[in-house]
Computed example of a mutant assay.
Amino acid sequence: MGTSVKLDEKYNDLQYISVNNKNICVQKIGSGEEVIVLLHGGGVSAPIMEYRGLTKLLSEKYTCFSIEFLGYGFSEGTQVPRTIENIVEELHCIIGQIGCKQFTLIAHSIAGVYALYYLNKYKNDVASFVGIDSSVPKQNDFVNVEKATVVSWHVTNFLSKVGIMKLISKLGDTFIPKINGITWTKEERILLKEMFLESCTNKTVLNEFKNITKNFEKARNLSYPPNIPVLFILATGTLKQIKPWKEIHQYIIGDKVNSKIVFLEGTHFLHYKCSEQIVEELEVWKSEILSSCIRR
């Protein structure tokens, strides 16, 4: 992504991996023996920056790789259709190049569906999966995700073309995410606004939105492989919007051993305000899995 802002030392750990002649941005943070790979949700303008609160905590124990899909953040855009097959193959290529094996995969929002597809295709890559208010294919039965996201994109795109979004960005910090434990520098605030304004006209993301229903249907009959424990950390705010939010997540894990669902008080973007609780739940769950293995 082109930006007028010079990145400071906090972004020296960004690396660019070429996939089909397009650069995908990956941030590596931490040096722990165990590896975590983080995937972001749809329509997020600055994924690596917005994950900062969570990766800051996780990096105290783990080696964390945050991957920005094509069309997001510091990554390049693409005209390659945003089908679930293409997205998952790009992800597999990235993971192969950074050398991750037997890692914990963490996905937020729509990336949960991509992760489900990935786990079924590459069963031996992943040791465990954590969904942060992550999507499951059956949610499309209760809310038209594609329609909502496409309409939202067109509205913001129109407001951007007539200059309203740029005006709003100059008047205040409406587009600056408020994340617990993170204080943005002046340069970062400018960068976040630039990234948001660029996302308003992002055709790569629009193509992803237009493929949501088809992508969800392609994953509809999938379940998590028996050997991969699953932790769903869901938001009470989403439960109010989608009443069977717990049930559709319970359905997809069934009675899988070492899998668990917990709720945290908050909105869909739990990692903005609840990063500490997310890490705590992750550690409790991992200790439960270890204890279970010892008993067996």
Results as ranks from 00 to 15, higher is better:
His40Lys: 05
Gln277Lys: 15
Ile84His: 14
Thr78Trp: 03
Glu187Pro: 07
Lys161Asn: 10
Glu50Gly: 04
Leu91His: 04
Ile168Asp: 05
Thr185Trp: 04
Met49Lys: 14
Ser66Asp: 03
Leu119Gln: 05
Glu68Gln: 08
Asp141Thr: 04
Leu91Asp: 14
Ile248Val: 09
Gly112Leu: 08
Ile17Ser: 00
Glu76Asp: 15
Asn21Arg: 08
Ala148Leu: 13
Thr156Ile: 13
Gly42Phe: 03
Ser4Gly: 09
Leu192Ile: 03
Asn23His: 05
Ser134Lys: 01
Val136Gln: 06
Cys293Val: 14
Val162His: 06
Lys214Ile: 09
Val262Ile: 09
Ala111Cys: 11
Met165Asp: 08
Glu217Thr: 14
Asn207Ser: 13
Phe196His: 10
Ile278Asn: 13
Ile98Trp: 07
Phe263Gln: 00
Glu90Thr: 00
Tyr118Val: 07
Ile29Ala: 02
Thr55Met: 07
Phe175Ile: 03
Val136Arg: 12
Leu192Met: 10
Leu14Arg: 02
Ile233Thr: 09
Asn202Pro: 12
Asn157Pro: 06
Asp141Asn: 13
Leu234Met: 06
Gln250Asp: 12
Ile164Arg: 00
Ile24Gln: 02
Tyr224Val: 09
Thr201Ser: 14
Cys25Arg: 06
Val155Thr: 11
Val151Pro: 03
Asn144Gly: 00
Ile164Gly: 10
Gly41Pro: 08
Tyr51Leu: 00
Gln27Ala: 07
Lys161Asp: 09
Ser259Leu: 02
